[in-house]
Design a protein around this nucleic acid. Structure first.
Lengths: 198, 198
DNA sequence: AAACTATACGGAATGCCTTTCCGTTAAGCA
DNA sequence: TGCTTAACGGAAAGGCATTCCGTATAGTTT
């Protein structure tokens, strides 16, 4: 790779990071190239699909998220480790403006993104999940990928709702992963009464 | 309203229904107007925002969904009624190609859509939810609107997954709404063992 | 250090789509 | 029958993604 190409890639990643923070992950191509001081052709040459650019920009944070799984797994009991990591994951996905939407937009420019992200994150979470399952804490009928995909869906920012909305709903979903003896959810979950519907 | 205008509105609704089925709710305006045999100006005059068109096209089905709540509430116990209606709702949202995405796209053309839909559907579901809550079946810390919004998120079609994926994950979320004594979910939920994490 | 070659550059061009605008048409009424 | 005005249709304007290709230059060879 020629040295000018190398420089431009760095400049583009830098610019994209700024642009993503400012306008979300579908910032107009021109905004990025102007910031980087290159032509649009150069952007498309190095990152033909938007997902290539996003993955490259986020690679650091992805790695950190992956690493956190091992740490949490070593520190906490299985269920607590699982919950903590999912919180971190949901924050990662929900905080990057537009990332959650891009993940499921159907726009071909983002086709590779879910694959790429999940391929990296799934093994990390899979370890936590199997521990929780074999310990009897979590239901056994969901795959790791199912959970990650669904939390990405739940993390879409909803206009008119606080960011905490997504966290609360993620928590409900995670509660649904528990087998029984639901943990206190901290907001007045009542002691239950049985019913006859099942 | 002039009679030709009346006719065109009908033609547009018809065409939009077809186009939505064929290309999803963000079918190009031209596809719709060509089908209807009118100019694009006519589309925008009658339906300035895309959401106006969508709501008009779906109004029938929305009404049916609202009506179903009363029926189910009268027929089943509270929890079963709640679960059944949510299944119906999720199918409605998930089946219309692109509707779930449009609901949370952030595109200003769809700004009114969530409001409009939820304003109609929320009261129907609210009745079911409060029954379930006061009967002690469902947790009390979620609002009806929260549940509808979240199920709309979970109902986004995910490329590479069966449609049943969304149903299964919706089911996990709904399980999370239960207070205790989770119902059998039908796919090998194991009898639980307690743990010490809570 | 000059010439050469292949790599990479920039931005104009293309294509698709939304949305607006306005000259033209025709519905409904007197 | 003629008038008024609501409504029409499609051209035009604007925005953005993506491609294409003539030009520039890094790196290499002599």
């Amino acid at each position: 790779m020629r040295s000018d190409a190398q420089r431009n890639v760095v400049a583009l990643l830098d610019a994209a990071k700024t642009a993503f923070a400012h306008s979300g992950v579908d910032a107009p191509a021109k905004e990025i190239t102007d910031l980087a001081g290159v032509g649009v052709g150069t952007l498309y040459r190095h990152f033909p699909r938007r997902s290539d650019l996003i993955v490259a920009v986020l690679q650091n944070e992805i790695d950190e998220c992956v690493d956190a799984a091992a740490d949490l797994g070593a520190t906490f009991e299985p269920w607590q480790a699982l919950v903590s990591w999912l919180e971190r994951y949901a924050e990662f996905v929900g905080t990057k403006r537009g990332l959650a939407s891009a993940l499921h937009s159907g726009d071909p420019a983002y086709d590779d993104l879910p694959q790429h992200l999940l391929d990296q994150l799934e093994p990390a979470f899979h370890a936590l999940l199997s521990q929780a399952v074999s310990g009897g804490y979590a239901r056994a009928d969901v795959r790791a990928r199912d959970v990650l995909t669904t939390l990405a869906l739940i993390s879409h920012p909803v206009p008119g709702e606080q960011p905490s909305f997504n966290q609360r709903m993620a928590r409900v979903f995670v509660d649904g992963l528990r087998l029984v003896n639901r943990v206190e959810s901290g907001r007045g979950a009542r002691s239950g009464v049985g019913d006859g519907t099942e």
